[in-house]
């Protein structure tokens, strides 16, 4: 019973962070700032939802698979994010900054 409550709370927290990630990805001004909320979904959102599912599984095989999904996400998501950011920088994308937003200069690729 207590375990059930903990699991539900965990799922609720995870769902909240997933929503925050979704809102952030839409709200932030440029690619690099959007990646930060996206990272929230990948690490905290996924972590809490999978943690919440863990007590509901009732079978060691299911638990191991849940843990495996979490480990895969934890290893792959930063690599994908890093590759994306690196490629975007190489392509000449300039990160948004507060100062540039004020002056509104629009210089293209170098």
């Amino acid at each position: 019973m207590i375990l059930e409550i903990i699991s539900w709370i965990s799922i609720a927290i995870g769902a909240f962070f997933v929503l925050v990630g979704g809102i952030g990805i839409l709200r932030m001004p440029d690619l690099f700032t959007r990646m930060h909320p996206a990272g929230i979904t990948d690490s905290v959102g996924a972590g809490f939802i999978l943690l919440g599912l863990l007590p509901q599984s009732g079978d060691w095989l299911v638990s191991v698979k849940l843990a495996l999904i979490f480990v895969f996400l934890l290893f792959t998501s930063p690599v994908a994010t890093h590759a994306l950011a690196h490629a975007a920088l190489l392509d000449g994308l300039k990160p948004w900054t507060k100062a540039r937003d004020k002056t509104r200069d629009k210089d293209g690729a170098p």
Binding site: I25, A38, T41, I49, L50, L53, I69, L73, L84
Partner: peptide
Amino acid sequence: YDRILAVNQIGTQTVLLIA
């Protein structure tokens, strides 16, 4: 790159949704 990021994000959410 924004689109790739968004699609990657949808993929992560799909993984969780399927679970």
